[in-house]
């Protein structure tokens, strides 16, 4: 008998009393009640609590906002599918490092030498301040939003749900998913939270109304 079969047999032996499979009482909230404005207000509050930078702007102000946020960056990486209009202001295109698609993949060393990253996002949960990336072309592979120390992340208000169950229903669970709730942090010393460890130490969220 293979190890696999031995373990499965052991599980069956352990369950020889045939315990009942209970119904799952899903009496918790499956949908939130907040309207669009409330969702954005809650999201801003949560992100600020996590010490992320937050800007709420109209669609046409997105490029200028991104420009200002990247003012101190010598270089930044963007996924191949990012809306080009968001970077239309860039006069020094040597600052931009495209990743993915026809541009191919940047090496880890190259990403480590890049100051910032700009991505879009898939879905965001207002209640917990959680932005979810799913690797779509405007978000790119996971490494690009991890290695640079500054992440500028654009969230569209139509992608903001009030609570987590709504957000998970909008996702394909088999894509590589990254849930981000603020900049990297740790509570490992005396259980007090401090921001900024291995992931991006600066997170700026641009919310489009």
């Amino acid at each position: 008998m293979s190890t696999r079969e031995q373990i499965l047999a052991a599980v069956r032996t352990a369950l020889k009393d045939a315990p009942a499979v209970p119904d799952i009482p899903r009496k918790y909230r499956l949908d939130g009640e907040a309207d669009a404005q409330q969702r954005i207000d809650v999201l801003v509050d949560r992100l600020e609590d996590y010490k992320a930078g937050v800007t709420v702007v109209d669609e046409d102000a997105v490029p200028a906002t991104i420009r200002d946020l990247l003012a101190g960056a010598g270089s930044y990486v963007v996924p191949a599918g990012l809306d080009p209009a968001w970077l239309a202001w860039e006069t020094d295109t040597s600052r931009i490092r495209y990743d993915g698609g026809a541009h191919g993949a940047r090496s880890v060393t190259e990403l480590d030498a890049t100051d910032a990253v700009v991505t879009a996002s898939a879905v965001t949960v207002a209640e917990s301040g959680t932005i979810i990336l799913d690797g779509s072309p405007d978000q790119g592979r996971r490494a690009i939003s991890l290695i640079p120390d500054h992440h500028v992340c654009v969230v569209r208000s139509r992608d903001v749900t009030a609570i987590l169950p709504e957000a998970l229903r909008r996702l394909d669970g088999t894509k590589p998913l990254t849930m981000i709730s603020g900049p990297s942090a740790t509570s490992d010393i005396e259980l007090e939270r401090v921001e900024g460890v291995h992931g991006p130490r600066r997170l700026d969220v641009v919310i489009i109304r």
Binding site: G129, R142, T178
Partner: peptide, 12 residues
């Protein structure tokens, strides 16, 4: 004791 931990990775 956080509303959500900073990072959750899911992969298949």
């Amino acid at each position: 004791g956080e509303r959500m931990n900073p990072y959750t990775s899911l992969w298949t």
